[in-house]
């Protein structure tokens, strides 16, 4: 136990020394305990996460460094290997491929590189992975939007500089769908504002999409189906 703490204290100190170079920071959650940390790293350049800062909750188990660190994204991130709901991470080195030579810092570097090299065939978030595999364009746009909303990335450098909120109901609906982690291609097709309307009643957005698809609740068909039928399905 003493060795674990000694090593962790040294790691934190080392990381603080070169944080200006790497952009990676680590701080203790409680000043007098070496069990929990919060690490941050910048989103990698040339990815939709660029410009964002990502906070990671880190827990060092008692058996550290012989047992893996537990890491979870605090900052919401749209990525196939990170749960968009809980921030849980699917990364082999944090599970079966752990090695005692890994440190707080090297693990944060690994997460940073995970952001630039998604592994959609071994997903943590199947919905996100599906979008990644079907449309990189839609994936990138949502990931970028999440980086702006949650990770503090500068908003898009679109030359017209039009404010997002003025984009009309469809645009706002799409944005809301994106934040809910819905494939906005599908949301657009169903009519994003309708999806959002049901989601705002407190239903899980992905379930809303599922039900609307099932009932073919779109365009001219909406009236025929009726929103009571949708609600009935959603409650069941």
């Amino acid at each position: 136990m003493a060795s674990r703490n000694k090593r962790l204290a040294r790691e934190v100190a080392d990381c603080q020394k070169d944080s200006s170079k790497s952009g990676i920071t680590i701080r203790l959650v409680h000043p007098d305990s070496l069990d929990k940390f919060v690490g941050t790293f910048p989103g990698p350049q040339g990815t939709p996460y660029e410009g964002g800062t990502y906070e990671i909750e880190i827990e060092a188990p008692e058996g550290y460094p012989f047992q893996p660190l537990k890491m979870r994204f605090i900052t919401k991130v749209y990525h196939p290997n990170v749960s968009s709901q809980s921030g849980f991470i699917c990364l082999d080195i944090l599970k079966t491929s752990w090695s005692p030579v890994f440190t707080l810092r090297t693990c944060l570097v690994s997460l940073q590189s995970l952001l630039s090299t998604p592994e959609p065939n071994d997903p943590q978030d199947a919905e996100v992975a599906k979008v990644y595999l079907t449309s990189r364009e839609r994936f990138d746009e949502t990931a970028r939007y999440w980086a702006q909303v949650y990770a503090g990335a500068p908003s898009s450098t679109s030359p017209n500089g039009a404010s997002e909120s003025e984009g009309g109901e469809d645009k706002q609906g799409r944005r809301a769908a994106q934040l809910a982690g819905i494939d906005w291609g599908i949301a657009d097709e169903l009519g994003a504002p309708w999806v959002v309307r049901f989601a705002e009643m407190g239903f899980e957005p992905r379930k809303v999409v599922e039900v609307l698809q099932l009932l073919n609740y779109r365009a001219d068909n909406r009236e025929r189906v009726g929103h009571e039928a949708v609600l009935e399905r959603l409650f069941s």
């Binding site: 060795s3 790691e11 020394k17 460094p65």
Partner: peptide, 21 residues
């Protein structure tokens, strides 16, 4: 101090030091 070549990768103490136990 933190030359990674001179420390045991497992305990991160210098080779010339001893393991934490």
């Amino acid at each position: 101090d933190d030359d990674d070549d001179d420390v045991c990768g497992i305990c991160r103490v210098a080779y010339d030091g001893c393991c934490p136990d």
